[in-house]
Amino acid sequence: MYDFAYHKPTSVADAVKILSADPDARPISGGQTLLPALKHRLNKPTAVVDLSGIAELKGVKRQGDKLVIGALTKHMDVANSPEVQAAIPALAQLASGIGDIQVRNRGTIGGSVANNDPAADYPAAVLALDATVVTDKRRIAADDFFQGMFTTALEPGELLIAVEFPIPEKAGYAKMRNPASRYVMAGAFVAKTKSGIRVVINGAGPGVFRQADMEKALTANWSADSVGAVKQSADGLNGDIHGSAEYRAHLVTVMAKRAVTAAG
């Protein structure tokens, strides 16, 4: 990797100060994306701001009818959290299936959501559960947050603090992994929320997206067969050596069915 300055602030305010002063500084939480990029010399930040010293960013809290998960909470801690398991078991299950055990013990929800890798798991849950992304400056609705491949509503220097998940009536998640990378090749997160039924597809397209036809079908009839009758168009989906757009389109329906079955 190239040389960079290293900072380890202990408060959000200090972190934001460093990041705002230097547009080429990069925050690092679990480092599951940034570190490999640094090691391959694909990224040349002037400074790396290590967020791991900021205690206020860690942990899961139940606040009334929502769960608030700090940005620095590791996948393993979400998976094992009794609050998450009780309130949104699909979210705990999702966290328990990210990457491998090493990734789950390093990677964080904030890092995953802010990075918005199209093949990541968390963005599907955030969007499907109609969550709110809390930053140091504002609150952003999930529908406004994800803006396509590796792109979010976050401004330069803006730091993701927490994600607030309203507790749904029911939710389920299913995915097909890329056989090599084990990232999501096609996944579906379905949820019955206060704002209605939401179906979000990840892995298959250039970013997470809501599947309107599936939402309609499930609103009319919440069942695996109902969503299974909806075909996903291959137009605009990703294709690579592991899965063509057509294969991914097929998997979207299969995973949506499985997600509904999992949700119950």
């Binding site: 990378s181 050596i241 592991h242």
Partner: peptide, 23 residues
């Protein structure tokens, strides 16, 4: 079931890391 070294027609190794070469 899993492994294949895949080149594109220009001779670039598409399965050039563990992200794409499935051990």
């Amino acid at each position: 079931l899993l492994e294949a070294a895949v080149y594109d027609s220009d001779g670039q190794l598409l399965s050039g890391s563990m992200m794409d070469y499935c051990l």
